[in-house]
Write a protein that binds this DNA or RNA. Structure first.
Lengths: 330, 330
DNA sequence: CTGAAAGCGCTTACAG
DNA sequence: CTGAAAGCGCTTACAG
């Protein structure tokens, strides 16, 4: 079991020499082509593989097969717990299917997203997972060229393409129901100013439902900021300065709710007694340190499996399927 | 600007044909070997590159150069905010240096860690970043073979190797000072049962300092659990059942503090009035939703830079440097 | 200043 | 049942 990684890793040639066969034979056995090969040869090759510590070199394999086992995930802001949960579950699912994940943090910037897309193409990645992508020129080209992409959370800019996400309109409506069924009538909603389709749908679902239930006015405020935390803080400040504190407040993400909570605390407004906060995401941390927050729970830990399934489907040529994941009221 | 990604990406040969030169010439220009080449040729090749939309194929380059631009990060539990922060900053630093990060979630398991190490070697990665690694057979082999590794947070099992982390003994001592200077004398500490060297150092620093200050007894409790959250919850339960609530409690991670907080809340014990909690990590979320927690703050967002610097140093042959990162009292 | 040629490690028809 | 040979895309001494 001698291995000399630093000097030169064992190649097919090394194994072939050790076993006294051709590299073609070793290659076949490494790849499970065992049906036509004598048991004796197979045993000898297997032994040689163990002795020299052979591991296939993926650069050679990729070059020859013209396809790698690499899959790129492009996501904005890895520090957001939502992204971390999606990344973790996808990584596990990819690994189980024999793939390796490259993680790229786009910071929600089209230019960085494009830089990464080009870099990933250079790496000959086999597929792309775009989490909350932004529209960008290279992405558009990739889609047009039929590159294997699965979109997560935000739908493809083009409208067509594989997609995994939740029913955001329904999530918004469910949040409205939570507030309404708690007897609260003066309600508001906090959103980012540069709202994506996700934000828009949640907002629409929320407002439509509240109106259907008989509310005349839904108080709205939005803000820009480096993070949803800051957006929540600023938006609630703006809203309360204008309309006073409502009885209930829907935040289109848990992070926005955290921001609103901080402002409430600094204003000596007691949450949830004075104002009930409802978020969307269902961060697992909530039950530990944010018991005051009710939230629409999304099982991001379970996104990995369907993402990989759709990717597989895309590879097979069926490019437009989608998986609408369930959400629940926590 | 025609591109036909799906059919066949442009290769050096494509460009060479378009420019009417040899692939060797194109290769040189792509790699910035411009000193010996006529301006006219360079311009023609550059134009051809743009026209056919050429991007170098890294499989070919890796095979030939026998080294890739891929760097593997192996970390336990990507959902832990500490890991997310380290991963995010490292990814950015690697990207800036022209590398691509592969992220592997080892779940703190030696067998998975080994599986990943082997898989990464197959990918011909250029370096390994082991965040909170566990001892394992393959890791041992890698170290023995002189593989380019940077260890983060937990020191290399062998003792030798590049390392980025904080002074955990001092962090523990600083936590002791926080409690002591707040006038608290009955103090305890919560740790995971299967403590790593990180835990041991923080514990030691804490206890030694408290004793030096004149405390007779430091109350200790540990617990096993799937996460630090659960460990905190169970450990504080155990400690208080045995010794009652202390005035101050050091938790060797913020997550453990969160767990302790939940138990306190369920027991109607008011934090921090009845018992002051001090954590270690300084999760940015604290100031938003856990203002009751004081913490030793570690700038994980700044680990990326020194990690990449050390990796570079390792590549150059200097394998034993270390960077002790600062921490502060928040 | 530029090109022909070898070779990195692998796979796969093809021939035997 | 097994091997010789071509070729994936790239780099780099070497020759001119």
């Amino acid at each position: 079991m001698t291995r000399k990684q630093r000097s030169t890793p064992a190649s097919l040639a090394t194994v072939a020499a050790a076993a006294g066969v051709s590299i073609a034979t070793v290659s076949r056995i490494v790849n499970g082509e065992t049906r036509r090969a004598s048991a004796e040869t197979i045993a000898r090759v297997r032994k040689a593989i163990a002795v020299v510590g052979y591991q296939p070199n993926h650069a050679g394999r990729t070059l020859r097969r013209r396809e790698s086992r690499l899959v790129a995930m492009l996501a904005p802001n890895l520090e957001n717990p939502v992204m971390a949960a999606i990344a973790a579950s996808t990584e596990a699912a990819l690994r189980a299917a024999g793939y390796v994940m490259i993680l790229c943090d786009t910071h929600d910037r089209p230019d960085l997203q494009d830089e990464y897309l080009n870099a990933m193409r250079s790496q000959v990645v086999r597929g792309y997972i775009m989490v909350a992508s932004v529209p960008s020129p290279v992405l558009k080209d990739f889609v047009a060229d039929g590159a294997p992409i699965v979109f997560v959370n935000r739908r493809p800019p083009s409208g067509r393409g594989a997609f995994v996400g939740i029913d955001n309109i329904k999530a918004g409506a469910d949040a409205a129901d939570m507030l309404w069924s708690a007897g609260l009538r003066r309600c508001g909603v906090l959103t980012p100013a540069q709202g994506s389709s996700v934000t828009r749908d949640r907002l629409k679902g929320f407002c439509d439902r509240l109106r259907a239930l008989g509310t005349e006015d839904v108080y709205k405020a939005e803000a820009t900021g480096r993070s949803h935390l800051e957006i929540g803080y600023e938006a609630v400040q703006r809203l309360t300065a204008r309309d006073g504190w409502p009885e209930g407040l829907m935040c289109v993400s848990d992070q926005i709710a955290y921001g609103a909570y901080r402002f409430a605390r600094e204003s000596d407004v007691v949450i949830p007694e004075r104002c009930m906060l409802v978020g969307i995401d269902g961060n697992p941390l909530n039950r530990w340190i944010a018991p005051w927050l009710r939230s629409i729970e999304i099982m991001y830990e379970e996104f990995g499996q369907p993402i990989v399934e759709l990717l597989d489907q895309v590879w097979r040529g069926g490019g437009n399927a989608e998986r609408i994941m369930p959400h629940s009221v926590a």
